[in-house]
Design a binder for these strands. Structure first.
Lengths: 186, 186
DNA sequence: TAGGTTATGGGACGATCGTCCAGATAGTCC
DNA sequence: GGACTATCTGGACGATCGTCCCATAACCTA
């Protein structure tokens, strides 16, 4: 394992990440249907052929983008739990806040996440990436009641996706009692 | 309101419905990305221009198809509730069975339903159609505890979409305790 | 400095796309 | 039967697509 020193490769890797970031912006704005070599390149402000050089195919770019998006979301979940723990909280408030953020300011990113879900439904190789944030929650949270935990996880996904098709997305305050209900031991 | 007698219009309406059915099969097999005038026409065994005649645009065809699919699903939910009532059941078994069917044999249709969800997330005019089965449940079921009901609805959606990205989709027996948990008053 | 390697970018190719058009066909109404 | 209307269909147009090719520039190694 050698540390990255080659300036060419360094620039290349940087552009590759810029292309992924640009592709994510395109997905947030127009959905996966709007992702083409040209739209992504234009979004990144680079020539069209740049995307074909750094990704062996358009599908490669799409998959890399969605996986990157999922990783970021899993990281957020990780820190949310960490934050809840440091406060000694049971997490309901943190979860409700994260949900409100996901269907509000980060709405585009959340839609991208569910585009990944749908892609993963048809392509098994994408499923580990799609389940990533679920795995993070599962591994970090102690759950003695398996059924209650499964219900909680399902509830989170349902609140998110239903929040995306609501005309007026619920706020953290409105979500709070439902999350509380899902977390309450019974 | 006049009864349909014109043979031409009758044939036209029939073909229109055949095109919607063909489009749904294409969506089930390849997703919305696979829907083009030509693929749908080929699936229906009609010339390409037939789709452009009966639908003012490809988007029209796509929307009509997804709305039709959502209506069918809402109807299924309706009869599920009716079935549960006639048995005097609280519905857990019926719900679990419907979920298992949705992520098993009717997997393609369920994926189509969530493609509609994603489209509706970006286009408000599609949201009523996407929420249709939610509305059926809401209007038919008596729910004294609003929070519990919201949690139940979210749980259903979560179980469905997570079932789509499971490597081995859960069976009705495995879903049953979770549905039970979500329905249990507490 | 010479030679090899990697990234960049302009241009082009064939394929496929949505949509339109004009003629043909079939059903309706007087 | 003739005028009218709705449906059907083959063919075509321009636009856009993914991808490839090749010359150039930047960088590293020896």
């Amino acid at each position: 394992m050698k540390i990255q020193v080659d300036g060419r490769k360094a620039r290349g890797e940087k552009r590759r990440e810029e292309l992924i970031a640009a592709a994510l912006r395109v997905i947030e704005r127009e959905g996966v249907a709007g992702v083409t070599h040209r739209t992504v390149a234009a979004e990144a402000g680079v020539p069209t052929t740049s995307t074909t050089y750094h990704f062996s195919s358009l599908d490669d770019l799409l998959v890399a983008t969605l996986i990157s998006c999922a990783r970021d979301m899993a990281t957020e979940v990780y820190w949310m739990i960490d934050r809840a723990r440091s406060r000694g909280s049971r997490g309901a408030e943190e979860v409700a806040g994260l949900l409100a953020e996901a269907i509000g300011p980060s709405r585009g990113r959340t839609m991208a996440e569910y585009e990944l879900y749908l892609l993963a439904a048809r392509r098994p190789e994408l499923r580990p990436a799609a389940r990533r944030w679920l795995d993070v929650l599962t591994s970090m949270v102690r759950h003695d009641d398996e059924v209650a935990f499964r219900a909680f996880l399902a509830g989170i996904d349902g609140l998110l996706i239903q929040g995306l098709i609501d005309d007026e997305p619920p706020t953290a305050e409105e979500l709070r009692p439902i999350v509380d209900y899902l977390l309450k031991p019974h």
